[in-house]
């Protein structure tokens, strides 16, 4: 899995050189932020089910497409919402927080997804809205420390940016 450390070392190795001063600075910067990232990762891991549910509920309540896409006679259980994709991206965001880079999202979540969403006309608008909601409602110190929140929001923005 790609991280700042593996990227720096891979580039140095490819050129047969030692890491440069600026290489080490970027690694240093990455390590300095690791405590905040790990705090965010821990909070997200503990609360992801609630985070996903809240984001999904708000979006589906505001834009109840699943309910109307069904046909008469569907019971409330039948139209229970499917949050699979939101949870999938939250898990990838968690990995990014741990590794300190966007590698997990790039490798699994994002590349290729744009084309699939466009070709199959999948409803990215609902997902984007869910991530924007999560980003905007999360608050420090209630959910996590301010620096942890900054890290979490950065990856939420990364997903919003890449899916839209």
């Amino acid at each position: 899995m790609k991280s700042v450390v593996t990227t720096v070392l891979a580039a140095a190795d490819a050129a047969g050189r030692f890491p440069s001063g600026s290489d080490l600075e970027s690694v240093q910067g990455n390590i300095q932020r690791s405590a905040a990232r790990l705090e965010a990762a821990e909070k997200l891991a503990a609360g992801h089910a609630a985070v996903v549910k809240e984001a999904g509920d708000v979006v589906f309540k505001k834009y109840p497409y699943l309910k109307s896409a069904g046909e008469a006679g569907d019971s409330a259980e039948k139209v229970a919402k499917c949050y699979r994709d939101i949870d999938h991206y939250m898990r990838l965001i968690n990995y990014c927080l741990v590794v300190g880079g966007t590698g997990p999202l790039d490798e699994w979540g994002i590349s290729g997804a744009r084309e699939v969403y466009r070709a199959l006309n999948l409803p990215t608008a609902a997902y984007v809205a869910a991530f924007q909601y999560t980003r905007d409602r999360a608050c420090a110190p209630r959910d996590m420390g301010p620096q942890a929140l900054t890290e979490f929001r950065a990856y939420l923005d990364y997903v919003i940016n890449a899916l839209s």
């Binding site: 834009y63 109840p64 497409y65 109307s68 006309n121 809205a129 909601y133 905007d136």
Partner: peptide
């Protein structure tokens, strides 16, 4: 096209109005 009309409660009128609304006056960023 099964996902095209995923926001059936949203009228054309309202969608146009939202599109012209400045970002800072929206209820939700989305």
């Amino acid at each position: 096209n099964r996902f095209l009309n995923i926001f059936p409660g949203l009228s054309e009128e309202r969608a146009i109005e939202l599109l012209y609304t400045p970002m800072d006056q929206l209820e939700d960023a989305s």
